[in-house]
Design a protein around this nucleic acid. Structure first.
Length: 807
RNA sequence: GCCCGGGUGGCGGAAAUGGUAGACGCGCAGGACUUAAAAUCCUGUUCCAGCAAUGGAGUAUGGGUUCAAUUCCCAUCCCGGGCACCA
């Protein structure tokens, strides 16, 4: 028998799979239950696939293969998220036009992906930068536009000075650009948004979603729902209504001043002549401070008095109105009531500017004002709920009750109301970059903003040669007269195209709808088809997308649902995140120079060994630091497996092997289902070791080959053929097991004396307590320890333990 | 600061519901085969003492509950991730 030749075997089967179209899916098949197994698609920049990609894709594919063997009709597509910065920056760097470099890189990635041995249906591929795809991205935009969910507005937005484009809030991390790490600045620009915030409440509903708790929590925090009240503070001179939002209206009697954000629209009106200079200087100063600095909690608070006073509606008291940059203009009403005694930020501010303090909440232990003041001197503001004091008729109430009562009382005078706020803001989707789907809108001097009619889609992205990003807040497309100048679709007169392109997250917010329909030319997707195939049954990808892609895609799908285009609200029923693969503790990337290429390992050991090694590292969700030292173990295992299958045995291994196999079938299935491939592989090793020693018959060999098929598809295919079975193993079904044979008739259990193990006994699983105790006492070492005292208690947990308590 | 995870041999990691801690693999040590090496096979491998039987300690640290704790409770430390002036 020859040693296993991995490279030859893998080449042979990859060729055969392709020739026989083994992985093409009949979407109309109604005999089998469908299973949509989806992995987040890659950006085809210049990077080749590294070990991190394999760590993600190979187990995802093993899962898909497992589901196919379980009898499902599995759709497992892959595509390329080819618009956007990674591709464009690569093109700029290499001087090759993205149209060309994308084609090359996609081609190269396909070769690499095929070497892994996936069951991808290559006929269903999508490439987001191709016109037959982005035509429908533009169509999506138009549907939102029609419903008023897409609009242009002038606003302070995040600007990345390095990438020279605006960014969505989700793409700013710690005040830095998510792509390049440059510090983000603010710019006042007119930009396109999707009305994401209007979906905040819907996005908070995770009903029926099998998602990691952590991911749901992250989205909940990002959406940031808060329930409170809006209160009107009247200003007499000049007359104005100042509206504030608070979750702590119970502390209203402790409000000793108010604060507006520097950008608040009433600032100019409320600033008195005497204060004008100070205020203007202050606003000028805050503009220069970056967002990171401004949002830092450590930074000392600054502010300036406007000269005006507002009336606290609950007690008629006049309080000074200040301006400070610790108040954010885009949240709530951009103005707050300040209660220094019960809010950390207000406390720090009031101390600095020597503003008044009044204690209005006592803790639940009924401490009075004196005790609370002493507490605050030591610990700062008391921010918990408590019992109201110094609060007129409300004194003595709990915070929770007072919030309702005070709001209701003021509401009757139209001075307050209940209000819910969200941190989630609208999705800024326009980008001042070349490599994206053009926004299908035309600006006409006569008709104004006019959407491009659906029949005129796609608005083709022109192949311009100079697409370097610009500093003036305009897209490089604005330089292309040919693109820019057009006729107004409404009046036929001269008009100009919108030259911004769409955020690539728009492209990826709907691609899962396109896979089953990727060849349709008259619509983005067929309703019957997507209603049949979606939601995605299993979605696999990185946790870094929790508050970006995974929010955008849910939003887009919900919009499609609300517009009647699809019947399902949520796009992804079940979600699993792979862990991160690091190299010496750092995230693997080409730019860091620590990306490990899988090619060398695949060449030496084969794809099967390499993918099993990645799976053997630990649970899929954990990731880990890359280290190749253990790969020989998997290589040896494959060799052993190969020998076992090819060897003729005198014995069928008997009861031991039969039970071992049944246990293995059970364990492999349940572990694969929770992505614990590491223990699946370990269990296979154990069984192979056992069978190699004791012998095995052909029928059991066939079961074993089917069990390893999802993990080592090439090896399995070859063994399947050797055993004389019909191509292909992936359609041979998943072996069944006999529950009775997974339970041993006898077990070895420990015997404890006073909690310490003093021996073990082999005993029937269903043995009676009497028998167990008797056998335990018969153990020499146990008997020795029992003699040290008198037995006061005897414990027997069948199949687990015998215990004695001796005194 | 707040909210989640997590801390187990030299290493990666196993251990539903509390019940013989360390499966499986790597590495290491000894042995077999070989002129030799590699490959392969066998044996051992948590630490300490002992030739061994066995005894003691042991799942970040300190307490607690229990006949019995990696698992449950309290406190502390460390690491990773997320959020971070959201009123």
């Amino acid at each position: 028998m020859a040693a296993y030749n991995a490279s030859q075997t893998e080449e042979k089967w990859q060729k055969k799979w392709e020739e026989t179209e083994l992985h093409s899916v009949d979407l109309s098949d109604s005999k089998k239950k469908k299973f949509y197994n989806l992995v987040m698609f890659p950006y085809p920049s210049g990077d080749r696939l590294h070990v991190g990609h394999w760590y993600n894709y190979a187990p995802a594919d093993s899962y898909g293969r497992y589901m196919r063997m379980k009898g499902f009709n599995v759709l497992e597509p892959i595509g390329f998220d080819s618009f956007g910065l990674p591709a464009e920056n690569y093109a700029i760097k290499t001087g090759v036009h993205p149209t060309k470099s994308i084609a090359q890189n996609v081609e190269h990635m396909i070769v690499q992906l095929k070497r892994i041995g996936m069951i991808y249906d290559w006929d269903k591929t999508v490439v987001t930068s191709s016109p037959d795809y982005y035509k429908w991205t533009q169509w999506m935009f138009l549907q939102l536009y029609k419903k008023g969910l897409a609009f242009k507005k002038f606003a302070p937005v995040n600007w990345c000075p390095n990438d020279k484009t605006v960014l969505a809030n989700e793409q700013v991390q710690d005040g830095k650009c998510d792509r390049c790490g440059a510090e983000v600045t603010k710019r006042d620009l007119s930009q396109w948004f999707f009305n994401l915030s209007s979906y905040a409440e819907k996005l908070l509903d995770f009903e029926g979603l099998d998602w990691p708790e952590k991911t749901k929590t992250m989205q909940k925090n990002w959406i940031g729902k808060s329930v409170g009240s809006e209160i009107v503070f009247k200003v007499e001179e000049p007359a104005a209504d100042l509206i504030v939002y608070t979750t702590r209206i119970d502390t209203l009697f402790g409000c000793t001043y108010m604060v507006l954000a520097p950008e608040h629209p009433l600032v100019a009106l409320l600033t008195t002549k005497e204060q004008k200079k100070n205020v203007e200087q202050y606003i000028e100063k805050t503009k220069k401070i970056s967002d990171i600095e401004r949002s830092s909690e450590v930074r000392e608070k600054t502010g300036v008095f406007t000269g005006s006073y507002a009336i606290n509606p609950v007690n008629g008291e006049k309080v000074p109105v200040w301006i400070a940059d610790y108040v954010l203009v885009h949240y709530g009403t951009g103005a707050v009531m300040a209660v220094p005694t019960h809010d950390d930020r207000d406390y720090a501010f009031a101390k600095k500017y020597k503003l008044n303090l009044r204690t209005v909440i006592a803790d639940k232990k009924q401490h009075g004002e004196k005790e609370m003041e002493k507490y605050m001197e030591e610990n700062g503001a008391y921010c918990n709920d408590g019992i109201l004091i110094n609060s007129g008729d409300y004194s003595g109430m709990t915070s929770a009750d007072a919030r309702v009562k005070i709001t209701e009382a003021l509401a009757s005078k139209k001075l307050a109301d209940f209000k819910t706020n969200y941190k989630l803001r609208d999705w800024l989707l326009s980008r001042q970059r070349y490599w994206g789907a053009p926004i299908p809108v035309v600006n006409c001097a006569k008709c104004g903003e006019v959407p491009v009619p659906e029949k005129d889609l796609p608005v083709m992205l022109p192949e311009i040669t100079d697409f370097t990003p610009r500093n003036d807040g305009k897209s490089p497309l604005s330089k292309s007269e040919e693109f820019k100048n057009c006729k107004c679709p409404k009046c036929g007169g001269d008009a100009e195209r919108e030259t911004d392109t769409m955020d690539t997250f728009v492209c990826s917010s709907w691609y899962y709808l396109r896979y089953p329909n990727n060849k349709l030319t008259d619509k983005p997707f067929d309703k019957d088809m997507v209603d049949k195939w979606l939601p995605v049954d299993m979605y696999i990808g990185g946790p870094e997308h929790a508050c970006m892609h995974l929010i955008y895609a849910r939003f887009m799908n919900m919009v499609m649902h609300d517009l009647g285009f699809v019947d399902f609200k949520e796009p992804f029923k079940k979600l699993v995140h792979q862990g991160m693969i690091t190299k010496n503790g750092a995230k693997m990337s080409k730019s860091k120079g620590n990306a490990v290429s899988p090619d060398m390992f695949v060449e030496k050991y084969g794809s099967d060994v390499f993918r099993m090694y990645l799976m053997f590292m630990g649970p899929f969700q954990d990731g880990g630091d890359w280290n190749d030292t253990g790969i020989t173990g998997i290589s040896r295992f494959v060799e052993k497996f190969w020998t076992l299958i090819n060897q003729k045995f005198e014995s069928d291994g008997g009861e031991n092997v039969k039970r071992g196999l049944n246990k293995l079938i059970k364990k492999a299935g349940s572990d694969i289902e929770i992505f614990h491939f590491n223990t699946t592989v370990a269990a296979m090793m154990e069984f192979v070791n056992l069978a190699s020693k004791e012998g095995i018959d052909d029928a059991s060999k066939k079961d074993l080959v089917r069990l390893i098929a999802p993990l080592a598809p090439h090896l399995a295919e070859e063994c399947w053929e050797i055993l004389g079975e019909k191509y292909s193993v992936v359609d041979s079904g998943w072996p069944k097991y006999d529950e009775k044979l997974t339970i041993d008739s006898t077990v070895t259990i420990g015997v404890q004396v006073n909690g310490k193990v003093r021996g073990d006994i082999e005993i029937a699983v269903d043995a009676s307590k009497e028998v167990a105790i008797e056998m335990a006492k018969a153990n020499e070492n146990v008997a020795k320890h029992l003699k040290e005292g008198v037995i006061v208690k005897e414990i027997y947990v069948p199949g687990k333990i015998v215990g004695f308590v001796v005194k």
